[in-house]
């Protein structure tokens, strides 16, 4: 089987964060983890081409996935393999989008990443097999990927036994007992000593790896981002007031302050009177601009990134976060101040 393999700039050996902005390119044969994968696959399957793109470039540009699928087709791919992306958010998002785009175009595809990778939901119905949390688990992960490829080649579907990530879905249903009655049942069970029963698991905490501290603030570029739905008055781009499906960018170059009457919050989740009287209460542009002038920070990034957090799905919010990070890194931003309502 002819396989086209996708890796990011780092695993292709082209460089780290400094090279994350490079565009898509095709390299002959195997590169980076593809070498070990190729060994594990044996002679029956061949990695003919390795596609590479910088994480920031690919994560902040949704058209890249289709472009890469086109390149895979040109290389005569019978299967597109993406990753393993482990826990890396931008890389995972790109791998997920790539396999989704490939399957939509009729090209079989397989991605690999950690089940908690924030990009994973973008894979849609395309198969994803589990990777370890970091590249320290490269070998066992590639063994899983190789076995999955061999199985796909026989025409079989992948299952959980093959390492396929099958995330449990919460399926809504109507039941005979209304929620208040179920709450009474549940409280009685707990009072009787059952400490486990619950309709939704409790106690889960997300883990985010903190970024390294900024070295020299006085030369750093700082960005302002918000989930407080602050948009130009009249909401020209029709940002949702709840349940965001997207985020927007607005130029703030040359602006010393966010003027009342020119900006408004369209968030449906809180009383917006204070925000609309002084939009700097949602995004502290006036202060940050002064700190820029005083030399406390190097430069304020020239765009404000905005979405609405009200009722927004966690999966969407995670995706916005990954896209914002890619966007800001690409623009050379070292720190972002996120104001949240």
């Amino acid at each position: 089987m002819r396989i086209v393999h996708y890796v990011n700039q780092f695993y292709a050996g082209l460089g780290g964060e400094a090279e994350a902005g490079i565009g898509p390119r095709a390299l002959e044969g195997t590169v980076g983890p593809g070498r070990l994968l190729s060994q594990l696959l044996g002679d029956e399957h061949e990695i003919v081409v390795t596609l590479v793109c910088g994480d920031d470039y690919a994560a902040s540009n949704t058209a890249v996935a289709e472009e890469l699928v086109g390149m895979a087709r040109e290389a005569g791919a019978e299967l597109l393999v993406a990753g393993p992306a482990f826990g890396s958010g931008r890389y995972g998002l790109v791998c997920a989008r790539l396999v989704a785009a490939a399957e939509a175009a009729g090209l079989p595809a397989l991605a690999s990443m950690h089940p908690d990778n924030p990009g994973i939901s973008d894979a849609g119905g395309a198969p994803v097999v589990a990777a370890g949390a970091s590249s320290r688990q490269m070998r066992p992960t590639l063994q899983t990927v190789a076995a999955a490829i061999a199985k796909l080649a026989t025409g079989a579907n992948l299952t959980v036994a093959d390492g396929r990530v099958a995330r449990a879905a919460r399926v809504g249903q109507l039941v005979d007992q209304r929620a208040a009655a179920r709450a009474v049942e549940l409280v009685l069970r707990r009072l009787a000593g059952d400490r486990e029963s619950t309709e939704v698991p409790v106690g889960g905490f997300d883990v985010v790896t903190p970024s390294a501290p900024v070295d020299k603030l006085a030369s750093a570029t700082v960005a302002l981002v918000t989930e407080g739905a602050l948009v130009p008055a009249g909401n020209p781009d029709r940002l949702e007031s709840a349940r965001a499906t997207r985020w927007l960018r607005y130029p703030i170059e040359g602006m010393d302050s966010l003027a009342s009457g020119k900006w408004e919050s369209v968030d449906g989740g809180f009383a917006t009177t204070a925000a609309n009287a002084d939009p700097n209460r949602i995004v502290p542009l006036d202060t940050v601009r002064r700190l820029e002038r005083d030399g406390v920070i190097g430069r304020l990034h020239n765009e404000l990134l905005v979405t609405v957090g009200n009722g927004t799905q966690v999966a969407s919010a995670r995706r916005f976060g990954v896209e914002w990070a890619a966007e800001l890194r690409k623009a050379g931003v070292q720190a972002a101040i996120l104001t949240a309502t």
Binding site: L217, V222, A274, N280, I282, T287, L291, I297
Partner: peptide
């Protein structure tokens, strides 16, 4: 409703609060 402000204090005090808040955010990063 006002992560980077405080409508309950006079404008000069709000400006000073916002400055300290942002400065603290910069300390944090």
């Amino acid at each position: 409703p006002y992560p980077s402000g405080d409508p309950n204090v006079p404008p000069s005090a709000e400006q000073s609060w916002r400055r300290r808040l942002v400065q603290r955010a910069l300390d944090a990063v």
